[in-house]
């Protein structure tokens, strides 16, 4: 074979490989696009419908390109739409969720950081066993806790109150936050702590000067995990509160269930989006940390 024929064979092979490569690339992107459309469709439909006028939705169906435009559904959903007799929209329930999720997130994260610090850097006899026992809380189904909580919240006068839900979420969250922080602090070298102790630093000083400055990555993960989890929680919200005191998840179910007259999809879409917005914002701005929390919380 001459050099020329060898080159020709190579060219042909390269062309075939190139075509095959192109075909497989096309299939890959086609599949990804197909799934992306399915994943995005519900969100896009929600956004569209929150700006379409109700008569147009009734005529063309929920899944249609907008042919009308209004902003009033958002205003109605926020402040005037009626749920079960009270016409205050979602505003109050949105704020309930905020006043519940923010303090509960801060408290449970602070406790988790301290617990994690003790369980990784100040181990004592039996501390590993205690850690394992605390982890059981991660798996407890909420249903087991319903009657005991109902009794305790009643005794404390915290039934139908955001404070009651804060208490429930903090205690339920401790297992998760302790797990996250402990597993992160374990990777901080013990020598750092030892050196600080030789220099005379105590428990709190080491926490403030060494552990906390190294903590932001895990604290962000924990805060995101707790906030989205508590914001999205429904069971405790619907059981321990009612009406105006409900968090937004419970209010959304009440809102969409009260469909005696023609369903106002425009307002309901806006209301659902209002309920979905805070965790979505957290997800889009802290996505990396959200995923990290997810995989850590899942695998550990």
């Amino acid at each position: 074979m001459t050099d020329a024929t060898i080159a020709a064979v190579h060219d042909r092979e390269a062309a075939i490989a190139g075509r095959r490569h192109l075909a497989s690339r096309t299939i890959i992107y086609a599949l990804l696009t197909f799934f992306a459309l399915i994943y995005l469709a519900p969100l896009v439909i929600l956004v569209f419908n929150s700006f379409r006028e109700q008569p147009e939705i009734a005529q063309n169906g929920l899944i249609a390109f907008p042919r009308s435009f209004q902003l009033s559904a958002w205003a109605d959903a926020w402040s005037t739409y009626c749920i079960g007799g009270t016409c205050e929209g979602m505003r109050r329930n949105f704020l309930n969720s905020l006043w519940m999720a923010v303090p509960a997130t801060v408290l449970s994260t602070a406790l988790g950081a301290l617990n994690g610090y003790v369980l990784s850097k100040w181990r004592f006899r039996g501390s590993e066993t205690l850690f394992t026992l605390m982890l059981l809380g991660v798996f407890m189904p909420g249903q087991i806790a319903l009657m005991p909580w109902a009794f305790i919240l009643g005794k404390l006068g915290l039934t139908n109150s955001t404070y009651g839900l804060i208490l429930v979420h903090v205690i339920q969250g401790i297992s998760f936050t302790t797990l996250f922080c402990r597993n992160y602090y374990v990777s901080i070298p013990d020598d750092l702590i030892k050196a600080a102790r030789i220099d005379g630093a105590g428990f709190w000083r080491i926490f403030r000067k060494i552990i906390l400055p190294l903590s932001p990555p895990i604290l962000i993960v924990t805060v995101i995990w707790q906030f989205t989890g508590i914001w999205n929680e429904y069971l405790f919200g619907v059981v321990f509160t009612s009406g105006r005191e409900q968090p937004i998840t419970a209010a959304l179910v009440a809102l969409t269930a009260s469909g005696t007259n023609v369903r106002a999809y425009d307002v309901m879409s806006a209301a659902v989006l209002i309920g979905a917005l805070p965790p979505l914002l957290v997800y889009f701005f802290g996505g990396k940390y959200f995923v990290r929390g997810l995989t850590q919380g899942a695998i550990k």
Partner: peptide, 29 residues
């Protein structure tokens, strides 16, 4: 791509369930 495939996890089952119940609704979905 990852952001698109993972975002449903950020919203609550209440939101997901509500939207899908509309999509399944024979009259409007």
């Amino acid at each position: 791509w990852r952001t698109i495939f993972l975002y449903p996890l950020a919203v609550s089952f209440i939101v997901t369930g509500t939207v899908w119940s509309w999509l399944y609704n024979p009259v409007d979905g």
